[in-house]
Design a protein around this nucleic acid. Structure first.
Lengths: 231, 231
DNA sequence: TTCCGTATAATTGTATACAATCATACCATT
DNA sequence: AATGGTATGATTGTATACAATTATACGGAA
């Protein structure tokens, strides 16, 4: 839990620490740095042409986002996500996305509602064309809209944390076209429930949406890459 | 989300950064540094006899714990909790403590069960004696045991974050003797449900326990100190 | 008076030097 | 050969100097 001022993320783009942070974040999420790999301050500093100081501070931020783990006097290691972690995250997200959808039903603004509708419309278009990258992007954005719409910065922050945490896994899941379309349908149903002002139904649907996403992941065996199967 | 290796907290006791971190954490939670107060690197460094570097790093950790907020090129400010935040946190905790209790029903070890029973026994003793400090301590510990017992480091970490976040508010709530006893009773019921292996009931009770705690806070007007009333 | 701009001070951002700690390799001893 | 200890190198921890940025105060112009 931390950094509730999201405007900082913008400001940070212009500081060295911010740039180092973003670069490392991207490299970890893209898989350049693998799990349990050690990140050395000098090596990364030299690679990016900065001193150790901003690198060290970027490390603290990455730890804050759960992407690395710092062991005192030893080093910084890329965080490993076990299958059990992924399972737990989806269990937690199921509850919280449900709560989020319920709150959003009352709090969503007209602009957010319109963006959500547009998002779903676009997603269906890209699904029919088989544009996987765009679909993944739109899926991320759908959830972000929902998080913002619930009008709770505590809930929004927690959900964004978890969302980002499973990004590495989730990207691959959506690559299966059938799940992509099913996911879109579920988004549409959630959106319609919110639009109709049916908070209970929105909560229930968002709940199920997460469980379905996890079931699909397990079915495709996509959690195994993170170690042993969740028990 | 961050710092999943709790052993670091122990190691950090022996580093300057760790000591600065602990000191500031204590001072913020105890109210020495008030909300929105600015923390200056040099001033704190001089006060503790260290340079700016460990102070800066401690700041990053405090931000990680949500106790301060760092604004680039400006400063570090003690995080303000609004009444709305407190309300949202209890709403979220209600769901997650429920999930935690449910999971704990299956995963709790014999040792944890025994500590939990002992905790409740002791709490009732101190309640009868009017020992408020001990009761607050035991209340914290009860929840920590529950978090550990659920056997999910993701859930445990999130709950500990939120728990700590409302510590400043919660301390005061328990000061009312009647709520202290009611809280103990609820702990006992949760414990008994877990012991009986009734996961559904444990979840439901933990759920209600949080909502009751929040209701009591509102009733006593204790959230108003954090700004306007939650709407 | 009010507003704007500039100068100055205070504060954070970054680089770098040095200290402390940890990992490794090698040698001596058993 | 196995074990233990010491020396060496690598890496992180800390202090400090300097740069960049921001806040404040002051003075002049409208």
């Amino acid at each position: 839990m931390a950094n509730y001022d999201l405007k900082n993320e913008v400001n940070d783009k212009y500081s060295l620490r911010g740039r180092v942070f973003q670069k490392l974040r991207e490299d970890i999420l893209s898989g350049k740095y693998k799990e349990h790999e050690e990140l050395k301050e000098v090596a990364i500093g030299e690679e990016l042409g900065v001193s150790r100081t901003p690198v060290r501070e970027a490390f603290r931020q990455l730890e804050l986002e759960g992407l690395i783990q710092i062991v005192p006097n030893k080093g910084a290691y890329v965080t490993g996500i076990t299958a059990k972690d992924v399972k737990d995250i989806y269990m937690i997200r199921s509850l919280l996305e449900g709560l989020c959808a319920r709150l959003a039903t009352e709090k969503i603004t007209k602009e957010q509602m319109e963006e959500m509708e547009e998002n779903i419309y676009l997603a269906e278009f890209h699904a029919s064309k088989g544009h996987m990258d765009q679909m993944a992007e739109l899926d991320n954005r759908f959830h972000d809209i929902l998080y913002e719409a619930c009008d709770s910065k505590m809930l929004e922050h927690t959900l964004k944390d978890y969302h980002q945490y499973v990004l590495r896994v989730r990207q691959k899941t959506l690559a299966t076209n059938t799940r992509g379309r099913a996911s879109n349908d579920e988004h549409r149903q959630i959106m319609e429930a919110i639009k109709a002002g049916d908070a209970d139904r929105a909560e229930q649907l968002a709940n199920k949406h997460m469980l379905n996403a996890y079931d699909n992941m397990v079915k495709n065996g996509l959690t195994e890459i993170y170690g042993e199967e969740a028990k």
